[in-house]
């Protein structure tokens, strides 16, 4: 699978390239030491997702090392870190998207509302309906705008009639801030929209299923600043009803949209905390190095 190759390649590249500048040796020393103790409070009150000692392997390569974190209800948490640090891999564990990668093995314990999502009794289809996902590149189905949004409710049987379905589609598009732009051309292909519109269509498609958690994997990295601003606004609105986990390369974005931030480094969770504190007063020197732009 391509995703697997991508991720492993990134990891190797990063390890080969190392970290530029004088910090290289020190950082290598740091990361080669037994394990990094996560700085900051990983627990939250009223958690929705609890991860304990999660390890992820791609074949022989370990992409995630012993990560534990809790994610609260209706919280926006950003995951930042240099490329290849495993933040996307970790995100994809939360709705078992890594299952489609043949060589990927996930160990540890991830609970959604107290149920282990990797247990045998968990149905992966149900899980993915509860934990929706928005991907890095907009990936609408090559179908009409209407069909894109209607697909989820239809396969899950969330609506009984055509009228209900129309309403669900309209609601989802409205909440994604796309309704006014597309209401007159619902039957046109979703792939004909601009990049930002496509990404909002993907968000509409995700919320049409009425998930509890939305995972966003660098949702704005393929978009221009105006489209990015719209998506960020949207995230702000969505955070009132949904738990949002966003992976981002842009620290400004993390600072703008999230309440909490988690910093990953080479597969390890280095620091978690209140976004403002992370950006103003990072405790770990790796976090500090990343935020001040010494590497990234």
């Amino acid at each position: 699978m391509r995703a697997a190759e991508d991720t492993t390649m990134e990891t190797t590249n990063d390890q080969a390239a190392g970290i530029p500048g004088g910090t290289q040796k020190e950082d290598e020393k740091l990361t080669s030491e037994a394990a990094i103790e996560t700085v900051g409070d990983i627990t939250v009150e009223n958690p929705r997702i609890q991860c304990h000692n999660v390890d992820v392997f791609y074949g022989d390569k370990q992409a995630i090392k012993n990560v534990s974190i809790e994610i609260g209800r209706n919280e926006v948490i950003a995951m930042i870190g240099p490329s290849g640090c495993g933040k996307s891999t970790f995100l994809r564990c939360l709705n078992r998207m890594n299952d489609i990668i043949e060589s990927c093995v996930v160990k540890g314990d991830i609970q959604l509302d107290g149920n282990n999502i990797y247990s045998k009794s968990t149905d992966v289809v149900t899980l993915r309906a509860q934990v929706g996902m928005v991907f890095q590149r907009p990936n609408p189905f090559p179908k009409s705008i209407y069909e894109n949004v209607a697909y989820g409710p239809r396969i899950h049987g969330l609506v009984d009639s055509k009228i209900d379905l129309d309403e669900a589609v309209e609601n989802s598009l409205r909440r994604a801030g796309l309704w006014d732009e597309v209401k007159d051309r619902l039957q046109q292909p979703g792939t004909g929209l601009s990049g930002g519109q496509q990404q909002r269509l993907c968000i509409a498609r995700t919320i049409a299923v009425r998930p509890e958690v939305i995972l966003m994997d660098e949702p704005c990295s393929a978009l221009d600043p105006i489209a990015t601003a719209k998506i960020e606004e949207l995230m702000d609105e969505l955070s009132q009803n949904y738990t949002i986990v966003i992976v981002t390369h842009s620290m400004q974005q993390a600072a703008r949209v999230s309440k909490r931030t988690a910093y990953f480094h080479l597969g390890e969770l280095v620091e978690v905390g209140d976004t403002r504190r992370i950006f103003t007063n990072p405790q770990h020197r790796l976090t500090e190095g990343y935020i001040t732009g010494r590497f990234g």
Binding site: T126, P142, H156
Partner: peptide, 26 residues
């Protein structure tokens, strides 16, 4: 493209649904 498979699985389609309503038509 894998992105289509991910999109379908991401909204909770089962594997058969993913294959027959998205991959095979393409």
């Amino acid at each position: 493209p894998p992105s289509i498979r991910e999109a379908a699985l991401g909204v909770g389609a089962s594997k058969v649904q993913m294959v027959f309503s998205h991959v095979v038509p393409l």
